Simulated assay, not measured.
Amino acid sequence: MIPSRALAVFLAVVAVTACSAAKPEAGKEGASASPTAPVVEEPKAERKPFTISFGGDVHFEGGLRNRLNDPRTALGPIARVLSAADLAMVNLETAITTGGTPAPGKQFTFRAPATAFTALKAAGVDVVSMANNHGMDYMETGLQDTLAAIKRSKFPVVGIGKDAAEAYKPFRKTVNGNKVAIIGATQVLDAEFIQSWTAGPGKAGLASAKNEERLLQAVRNARKTSDTVIVHLHWGTEMQKCPNQAQLSLAPKLVKAGADVVVGGHAHILLGAGYLENSYISYGLGNFVFYNHSAGTTGRTGVLTLTIDGRKVLKDKWTPAEIQGGIPIPLRGQAAQQATMGWKSLRSCSGLAARP
């Protein structure tokens, strides 16, 4: 028989031991100063449609250079249209340099200072493509100046880079819950510059659509991790109002690879736009900020605004404008109605549909 005092001591020791086992020592694995809080998953952001606006070809050559004296107003009243969209994009058809040597044998060479980026940003432009037949007009020195200016400005640019990986790399941004990827490339290069201007492994230059498989692979890669894939191309034949065979061949390949939108320009005039299966194609956005000596067909321009939800292009809207003094001035009233009807009529020779 255990004496009562000894029994009391024994029971006290057991109680202390049990308490120590129930409360692990602080700092040890599994220790907790308080009961574990329940894990609450944050709801995923709801995806909603977004808008993206596209303008055509832009440079700041000739008399347009003076507009960069005040970059905040360089694009004029069209900036209101671009700024109203969730995203806006144009083709920047110029080298960004004040030096370099003009490409030998070229009739027209374009260059502009880095304030071109400032002007575009001030006008509401979010990203530009520099993959075009003027992106390296001032050759290797101009290219290095361009790449340095892009790096300093931190302005989003596609279609050009220090090597092929960078040139074909998409611009990425999540807009209203949509993961958007935009790739830039050029189908137009002067024959004598195709090799020297095309980016390659360890070689700076432009993303070329002439290397179709490289471009299609970039689209397929973007498709894997994006809700919306957009390809911006420099393509077409100057002053030809219907798409050429190279465009008609490439567009369906891009759609099959996963492109939801394919837009571009080069022809200096507007071309048709519409649906190819469920994807949206614009074969020609025309000139935009461009010196024009007349208000004829090369002065007809505008902004294409698409409303997109994931892979679905829900709506297209054309805001017609006319180039005056080198910049696009939006049209109003009856003039706008007639210009919009004219733009829609261009679809007739494009093989595209008004609806998906």
Rank of each mutant, 00 (worst) to 15 (best):
F50H: 06
K162I: 12
A88Q: 00
G342R: 03
R47V: 14
L314W: 09
V13T: 12
A181W: 10
A204M: 09
T319N: 08
N69H: 12
E277D: 15
Y138G: 03
D57P: 00
P156H: 04
R111N: 14
F54S: 01
F10Q: 06
L68K: 05
A74W: 01
H266L: 08
V157P: 07
A353Q: 14
P3R: 12
A207N: 10
W343P: 00
K256H: 06
I308Y: 09
E29N: 10
K23D: 02
V261C: 09
A84Q: 12
G286W: 03
P330Q: 05
Q217F: 08
E213M: 12
G99S: 14
S129H: 11
Y275G: 10
N178K: 05
T228C: 12
N292P: 04
F108K: 06
C349W: 09
T174I: 08
S226M: 07
T115R: 15
Q195I: 08
V188Y: 12
C349N: 04
G274E: 02
G135W: 04
A119C: 10
V9A: 14
T340S: 14
A149I: 02
V303L: 00
L215T: 04
E25H: 11
Q195M: 07
T319Q: 14
G159H: 10
N287E: 00
L75H: 02
C349Q: 07
R65G: 14
E29I: 09
H293N: 12
S208H: 09
A273F: 07
R47E: 12
G302R: 01
T109C: 13
K315H: 14
P43W: 00
E238M: 02
F108G: 02
V313N: 08
V40M: 10
S345W: 06
M1P: 15
E46A: 14
W197C: 01
W343C: 00
H134E: 03
L314V: 11
A12I: 13
K162H: 13
G351C: 04
T307S: 14
A181Y: 11
A246C: 00
A335E: 12
S53E: 03
A339K: 01
Q334V: 12
V81A: 01
L250H: 10
L254M: 13
A85G: 02
I183R: 06
A339D: 02
T36H: 11
L7W: 13
V231R: 03
Y280M: 06
V231Y: 07
V263P: 05
G200R: 07
G184M: 06
K173D: 04
P243H: 07
G299D: 00
P201K: 10
S249M: 07
V219K: 02
L92T: 01
S34Q: 13
E213R: 13
P328D: 03
L254F: 13
A295Q: 15
P201D: 07
G258L: 11
G56F: 03
S350Y: 06
I2M: 14
T237K: 13
I183A: 01
L64M: 10
M139P: 03
E93L: 09
S196G: 00
V180M: 10
T228D: 08
I269S: 04
V219D: 01
T186W: 08
Y283V: 04
K106F: 11
N91K: 05
S208T: 13
V231W: 09
